[in-house]
Amino acid sequence: MADRLDELDRKILLQLQKDTSPSIEDIARSVGSSKTPVWNRIRKMRERGLITREVAILDADALGFEACFFVLIRTSEHDAAWQKAFLKALRERAEVQEAHRLAGDIDYILKVRVPNAKAYDAFYQALISEVKIHNVTALLSMEEIKSTTALPL
Protein backbone atom coordinates (compact mmCIF):
# COMPACT_ATOMS: atom_id res chain seq x y z
CA MET A 1 0.00 0.00 0.00
CA ALA A 2 2.87 2.39 0.72
CA ASP A 3 3.75 2.46 -2.97
CA ARG A 4 0.27 3.80 -3.75
CA LEU A 5 0.79 6.91 -1.62
CA ASP A 6 1.57 10.03 -3.57
CA GLU A 7 3.33 13.09 -2.20
CA LEU A 8 0.07 14.74 -1.06
CA ASP A 9 -1.01 11.58 0.79
CA ARG A 10 2.36 11.52 2.55
CA LYS A 11 2.08 15.19 3.52
CA ILE A 12 -1.42 14.61 4.90
CA LEU A 13 -0.30 11.57 6.90
CA LEU A 14 2.76 13.41 8.25
CA GLN A 15 0.49 16.24 9.39
CA LEU A 16 -2.03 13.87 10.98
CA GLN A 17 0.76 12.00 12.81
CA LYS A 18 1.77 15.28 14.43
CA ASP A 19 -1.72 16.41 15.40
CA THR A 20 -5.24 15.48 14.30
CA SER A 21 -6.94 18.38 16.06
CA PRO A 22 -6.63 21.03 13.30
CA SER A 23 -9.61 21.41 11.00
CA ILE A 24 -9.60 19.86 7.53
CA GLU A 25 -9.24 23.40 6.18
CA ASP A 26 -6.10 23.99 8.29
CA ILE A 27 -4.63 20.62 7.29
CA ALA A 28 -5.34 21.39 3.61
CA ARG A 29 -3.61 24.76 3.93
CA SER A 30 -0.56 23.20 5.62
CA VAL A 31 -0.16 20.59 2.85
CA GLY A 32 -0.81 23.02 -0.01
CA SER A 33 -4.20 21.73 -1.15
CA SER A 34 -7.88 22.51 -0.80
CA LYS A 35 -10.39 21.19 1.71
CA THR A 36 -12.43 18.71 -0.37
CA PRO A 37 -9.52 16.72 -1.88
CA VAL A 38 -7.86 16.47 1.54
CA TRP A 39 -11.09 15.30 3.18
CA ASN A 40 -11.60 12.70 0.40
CA ARG A 41 -8.03 11.43 0.73
CA ILE A 42 -8.32 11.10 4.51
CA ARG A 43 -11.63 9.23 4.11
CA LYS A 44 -10.06 6.86 1.55
CA MET A 45 -6.99 6.26 3.74
CA ARG A 46 -9.33 5.35 6.63
CA GLU A 47 -11.27 2.98 4.36
CA ARG A 48 -7.99 1.35 3.20
CA GLY A 49 -6.94 0.88 6.82
CA LEU A 50 -3.95 3.24 6.63
CA ILE A 51 -5.47 5.38 9.38
CA THR A 52 -6.70 2.92 11.99
CA ARG A 53 -7.79 5.28 14.79
CA GLU A 54 -7.23 8.68 16.33
CA VAL A 55 -6.39 9.03 20.01
CA ALA A 56 -5.36 11.64 22.56
CA ILE A 57 -1.77 11.25 23.79
CA LEU A 58 -1.72 11.86 27.52
CA ASP A 59 1.14 13.09 29.72
CA ALA A 60 1.94 10.04 31.87
CA ASP A 61 4.01 11.98 34.40
CA ALA A 62 1.35 14.65 34.86
CA LEU A 63 -1.20 11.90 35.50
CA GLY A 64 1.00 10.20 38.11
CA PHE A 65 2.39 7.34 36.01
CA GLU A 66 6.01 8.27 36.62
CA ALA A 67 7.60 4.81 36.38
CA CYS A 68 8.15 3.12 33.03
CA PHE A 69 9.51 -0.42 33.13
CA PHE A 70 10.68 -2.55 30.25
CA VAL A 71 10.04 -6.13 31.25
CA LEU A 72 12.01 -8.93 29.60
CA ILE A 73 10.32 -12.32 29.86
CA ARG A 74 11.74 -15.76 29.22
CA THR A 75 9.44 -18.72 29.35
CA SER A 76 9.97 -22.44 29.25
CA GLU A 77 6.35 -22.85 28.13
CA HIS A 78 5.56 -22.61 24.44
CA ASP A 79 2.29 -24.49 24.07
CA ALA A 80 -0.92 -22.90 22.84
CA ALA A 81 -2.71 -23.04 26.21
CA TRP A 82 0.10 -21.18 28.00
CA GLN A 83 0.32 -18.58 25.26
CA LYS A 84 -3.44 -18.03 25.33
CA ALA A 85 -3.40 -17.52 29.12
CA PHE A 86 -0.37 -15.22 28.89
CA LEU A 87 -1.85 -13.05 26.14
CA LYS A 88 -5.14 -12.84 28.04
CA ALA A 89 -3.30 -11.71 31.17
CA LEU A 90 -1.45 -9.01 29.22
CA ARG A 91 -4.56 -7.72 27.46
CA GLU A 92 -6.43 -7.41 30.76
CA ARG A 93 -3.77 -5.22 32.35
CA ALA A 94 -3.98 -1.52 31.52
CA GLU A 95 -0.40 -1.07 32.81
CA VAL A 96 0.91 -2.90 29.75
CA GLN A 97 1.29 -0.27 27.03
CA GLU A 98 3.14 -2.50 24.60
CA ALA A 99 3.92 -6.21 24.33
CA HIS A 100 6.12 -7.83 21.70
CA ARG A 101 7.07 -11.46 21.02
CA LEU A 102 10.75 -11.54 20.13
CA ALA A 103 13.27 -13.65 18.28
CA GLY A 104 16.40 -14.46 20.26
CA ASP A 105 17.13 -15.15 23.93
CA ILE A 106 14.20 -13.13 25.27
CA ASP A 107 10.71 -14.38 24.44
CA TYR A 108 8.68 -11.23 25.20
CA ILE A 109 9.27 -7.59 26.04
CA LEU A 110 6.64 -5.44 27.72
CA LYS A 111 6.43 -1.72 28.25
CA VAL A 112 4.69 -1.22 31.58
CA ARG A 113 3.67 2.21 32.90
CA VAL A 114 2.84 2.52 36.61
CA PRO A 115 2.98 5.18 39.34
CA ASN A 116 5.96 3.69 41.18
CA ALA A 117 7.99 0.56 42.02
CA LYS A 118 5.36 -0.66 44.49
CA ALA A 119 2.73 -0.57 41.73
CA TYR A 120 5.11 -2.45 39.43
CA ASP A 121 5.54 -5.13 42.08
CA ALA A 122 1.75 -5.50 42.36
CA PHE A 123 1.59 -5.89 38.56
CA TYR A 124 4.42 -8.45 38.63
CA GLN A 125 2.86 -10.48 41.46
CA ALA A 126 -0.50 -10.56 39.67
CA LEU A 127 1.10 -11.65 36.40
CA ILE A 128 3.14 -14.51 37.87
CA SER A 129 0.12 -15.70 39.85
CA GLU A 130 -1.72 -16.24 36.55
CA VAL A 131 0.95 -17.68 34.28
CA LYS A 132 4.16 -19.62 34.79
CA ILE A 133 7.17 -17.54 33.74
CA HIS A 134 10.72 -18.91 33.74
CA ASN A 135 12.57 -15.61 34.15
CA VAL A 136 11.62 -11.94 34.42
CA THR A 137 13.97 -8.97 34.24
CA ALA A 138 12.54 -5.51 34.86
CA LEU A 139 14.43 -2.46 33.65
CA LEU A 140 13.40 0.96 34.97
CA SER A 141 13.61 3.74 32.41
CA MET A 142 15.51 6.61 33.99
CA GLU A 143 14.71 9.08 31.21
CA GLU A 144 12.55 8.99 28.12
CA ILE A 145 14.77 10.39 25.39
CA LYS A 146 12.43 9.88 22.45
CA SER A 147 8.92 8.56 22.15
CA THR A 148 6.82 8.80 19.03
CA THR A 149 4.02 7.03 17.25
CA ALA A 150 4.94 8.68 13.95
CA LEU A 151 6.15 6.50 11.08
CA PRO A 152 9.01 7.79 8.90
CA LEU A 153 7.03 8.48 5.74
Score class of each variant (00 low, 15 high):
M1F: 06
A2G: 00
A2L: 06
D3I: 03
R4E: 15
R4I: 02
R4Y: 14
L5G: 12
E7D: 15
K11M: 12
L16A: 05
K18Y: 06
K18F: 06
I24D: 11
I24C: 04
E25H: 05
D26P: 01
R29D: 06
V31S: 12
V31F: 02
G32H: 09
S33F: 02
S33E: 08
S34W: 04
T36Y: 13
T36K: 13
P37T: 10
V38E: 09
V38L: 12
W39Y: 14
W39V: 10
W39L: 14
R41A: 10
R43K: 15
M45Y: 08
M45N: 10
R46Q: 13
E47M: 13
E47N: 11
R48D: 14
L50V: 08
T52E: 14
T52R: 08
R53E: 14
R53L: 08
R53K: 06
E54Y: 11
A56V: 09
D59I: 01
A60Y: 14
D61I: 00
D61Y: 02
L63M: 10
F65Q: 10
A67K: 00
C68G: 02
F70E: 10
F70V: 13
F70I: 11
V71L: 09
E77W: 00
E77N: 02
H78N: 08
A80G: 14
A81R: 14
K84V: 12
R93W: 04
R93E: 14
A94T: 05
V96F: 07
Q97H: 06
Q97C: 09
E98Q: 10
R101Y: 02
G104K: 09
G104Q: 15
G104L: 07
D105M: 06
Y108E: 06
L110N: 06
P115M: 01
A117I: 13
A117C: 07
A122P: 12
Y124N: 11
Q125V: 00
A126V: 02
L127Y: 11
L127H: 11
I128Q: 07
S129N: 15
S129M: 11
E130L: 14
K132R: 11
L139A: 03
L140T: 09
S141C: 12
T149S: 15
A150R: 06
L151F: 12
P152I: 07
